[in-house]
């Protein structure tokens, strides 16, 4: 899932400063799970901003709170169209995708990001998130025993390990396990060490032009086919 972090409060203050009525919009999926933009975070942010306002007296914003199930599908955004008419801006606590879908749906409103979106990852324990996938579009995990060298090797090398690992940790990032040592250990356990000896040619980055698009539709015939479904 997508992992993000709420922006510092002073940055959020600066971004909403020109707008007097702001809707703080949470997202009930990834952002809730990673604790960056669920209903609790929405009310924490609103409370913090209100408190600062009550004490400082420099700002005068009215803040609305709302959390949708998922910001990245426009249908969910229809549930607060009425409220959107009462505000001057939307502060989205969605990921980068959510912010853009909201902006697309509300062309007449400024949509501000409240989060910094970082990566796709997994939680290794409560409250700790690690990057696991770079969405490179050319998955090689079968050759690397389910450990991704693109994301987990700091250098992203396809033929490892380099000579820089020390005590199983990366020389460039002493916190991180060396991905290639993990790959070796798992391959050894699986009895597939021959995969270590193979050479993997450099990847062709030209196969991933941006922005990417996936079309995955079951095409429904609209006539001449007696309503039969063709795939």
């Amino acid at each position: 899932m997508i992992v993000a972090e709420t922006k510092p409060l002073d940055e959020i203050w600066r971004s909403i400063a020109p707008y007097s009525r702001v809707l703080i919009l949470g997202c009930g999926t990834c952002m809730t799970v990673c604790g960056a933009g669920g209903e609790r975070e929405v009310s924490f942010l609103a409370d913090a901003l209100r408190m600062s306002q009550a004490r400082g007296g420099e700002h005068d914003h009215s803040l609305l709170e709302y959390t949708v199930k998922r910001q990245c599908d426009a249908e969910f955004l229809e549930t607060f169209v009425d409220r959107s008419r009462e505000v001057d801006a939307i502060l989205s606590l969605g990921c980068g995708v959510g912010v853009q879908v909201v902006a697309d749906r509300f062309p007449d409103l400024p949509v501000l990001p409240g989060n910094n979106t970082y990566f796709m990852g997994a939680s290794s324990e409560w409250g700790v998130w690690d990057e696991r996938c770079a969405a490179c579009g050319d998955c090689r995990l079968a050759d690397t025993a389910g450990v991704c060298p693109i994301t987990r090797c700091t250098k992203g090398i396809l033929n490892g390990p380099c000579a820089g690992a020390k005590n199983g940790k990366c020389e460039a990032n002493k916190e991180a396990d060396c991905a290639w040592i993990l790959i070796y250990q798992r391959l050894e356990r699986l009895g597939q060490l021959d995969k270590m000896r193979r050479y993997y040619p450099p990847r062709n980055f030209r196969v991933i032009p941006r922005p990417r698009r996936i079309v995955n539709k079951t095409q429904v015939s609209t006539g001449g086919n007696d309503g039969q479904v063709s795939v």
């Binding site: 924490f44 409370d47 408190m51 009550a54």
Partner: peptide, 12 residues
Amino acid sequence: EEEHLLRAFEMG
């Protein structure tokens, strides 16, 4: 909860 703490400050 965090919210309770913030609200206490907000209310004076």
